[in-house]
């Protein structure tokens, strides 16, 4: 399936992924992130259940300390 991850088209095997699986596939292990699917915020508690499917637009932003 094809996802748009942070505005870049990316191919993934299979028909669907959970947010957690997508993060693992990208090897992103940041502890504090903002996740949006098709513009809608995904709560952290839903990372294991929320699915992404072909054509979905995913935005993942990494928050680091400092200010």
């Amino acid at each position: 399936m094809k996802l748009i991850v942070n505005h870049e088209e990316t191919q993934f095997p299979g028909e669907e992924l959970t947010v957690r699986e997508l993060l693992a596939a990208k090897r992103w292990s940041f502890p504090l992130i903002i996740v949006k699917i098709n513009g809608r915020l995904v709560e952290r508690s839903s990372y294991d259940t929320q699915k992404v499917v072909d054509g979905d637009e995913v935005e993942i932003y990494h928050l680091v300390s400092g200010g």
Binding site: I34, L41, E43, L63
Partner: peptide, 18 residues
């Protein structure tokens, strides 16, 4: 958002968006 700590940043961003 002008916090120092990343967890506080996440808190306020999610609060506003939600």
């Amino acid at each position: 958002e002008a916090f120092d700590q990343a967890d506080a940043k996440k808190m306020i961003i999610e609060t506003v968006l939600e």
